[in-house]
Nucleic acid binder design. Structure first.
Lengths: 252, 252
DNA sequence: AGTGTTTATCGTCAGGAAGACGACTATGAT
DNA sequence: ATCATAGTCGTCTTCCTGACGATAAACACT
């Protein structure tokens, strides 16, 4: 069968972003308010069309920079100045997922340290960090008693998948350090695990585990008291990306 | 900004399949010979265009049925007659990956028990099961001394990603049973792990591990001697999909 | 029938990792 | 000075794993 351009239907391809961070002991995701139909006024995940000459990862990194100012951190490159971790999550292509047309969305997962207020095209009121539980509870009421509208499109499903990916991946990788500033303490890293998993971990066992895994953490020599209490050693993320044996998520 | 159909570039969307099975103690993948340019005559992964009214998973299941006759096994449904495990793998959208046009391919991973010879549109010579090492070695020589051409497009990368997914996922899930017939012995399951990981496992420790994990295997009461030696108990896959603690892949 | 081979299955033992938790240390706040 | 807060080092018990001996039940020979 020869090549026939009419043999396949055209699709629009977008990237959507699940951008996660830890703020005030809670796992939060970036949400933007939709300014146009469909779902006008509702919260949604940031995203946009993939351009004609752009790779999927490039498109995701571009959208991430537009929405947050974050520089995507290539997992291969060692530098991690202001870079966020970025990886592909999954692709969503239900024919009915966008009422306007056939859209296939390649969702990406980005993890970032706690940041100043988000910006969405310069308009702060149209972007916010919200706890993932708040974004995921469908038709409930938020902390302020206001009714919560579910996320636009299938974005609740995408967000849930991204959260689950993050929760499981910090078990066996050093991904949790992506939520931390370049230098951090063992306690700060533990609070990341506690926020992402929503559990309390024993500080002593956690300390033994992370400091006893070769290549996971490298001490910088400095100390800090920014958490109060006794000064804590500062560490950087070591070269080890895989955590073996894994950190076990406590049973419920 | 109002909706403007000209604001986004059109893409072709395809599904590609990494279909894995275990044959003669080796992890094998399904490859089809391309009958048209580009890469005419080269081996490639099976796949095809997503239709206008089709979900991505539906498209992958349809392609799988066309190429192998396998019925995709929905992970939610309990029945697993002739069903193969099917899950989304990753999406590949480099602008240069297809010289004809901009194609975004949503790769899927399928796992199946050992099957009779494959069929590709009824033409057996254009489809085969090949050991993954043979398909992945670029520019080397196959077992028969013939030079081996690398897979078409970026399919070597996709295959490598699918193999890595399968290798890591059988560690912490019951996915390895997807390579087995509905009833199987502990030894047959162990040979699956050995083929997928390319290692030898201790039969006694393996037996203790899989029979000691609640819900992983349920005995059917029957026995078989199809492997020779002492009769072995037959099992079916239990309801447990997660293996905790995981089966540890031996270090190299 | 006996012997060897193959595979399955049960047991034992030592080493290591993890959960529970006690004890001590070094800061800032009152 | 005292307390609250966090960090860090140990101890103990329990569980899991890897290494490996031993037995059981089939088949293929002679």
């Amino acid at each position: 069968m020869p090549y026939d351009p009419s043999a396949f239907p055209p699709f629009a391809v977008t990237v959507d972003l699940v951008v996660l961070t830890v703020r005030r002991h809670a796992l939060c995701a970036l949400a933007v308010r939709r300014g146009e139909p469909p779902f006008q006024g509702r919260w949604a995940l940031p995203g946009g069309f993939v351009r004609a000459d752009e790779d999927l990862t490039q498109a995701a990194a571009r959208e991430l920079a537009e929405e947050t100012g974050l520089c995507a951190h290539d997992p291969a490159a060692p530098a991690q100045d202001n870079g966020a971790h970025l990886e592909q999550l999954a692709t969503y292509g239900d024919p009915e997922r966008d009422p306007r047309m056939r859209v296939v969305s390649v969702a990406h997962l980005a993890l970032a340290p706690d940041l100043p207020a988000p910006r969405a095209g310069g308009d702060a009121s149209n972007a916010r960090w919200a706890p993932v539980e708040e974004l995921l509870q469908q038709g409930g009421y938020g902390r302020d008693g206001e009714p919560v509208a579910p996320l636009a499109f299938d974005h609740a499903r995408i967000l849930a998948d991204g959260v689950e990916r993050a929760r499981s991946k910090i078990e066996y990788s050093s991904l949790a350090t992506a939520f931390c500033p370049p230098e951090f303490t063992v306690g700060e890293l533990r609070r990341v695990y506690e926020a992402v998993w929503g559990v309390a971990l024993d500080p002593r066992n956690f300390h033994r585990k992370v400091t006893g895994t070769p290549g996971f953490l490298v001490p910088t020599g400095g100390t800090t008291t920014r958490q109060g209490g006794r000064p804590a050693q500062l560490f950087r993320a070591g070269g080890a990306t895989l955590l073996n044996p894994p950190m076990l998520r406590p049973e419920v």
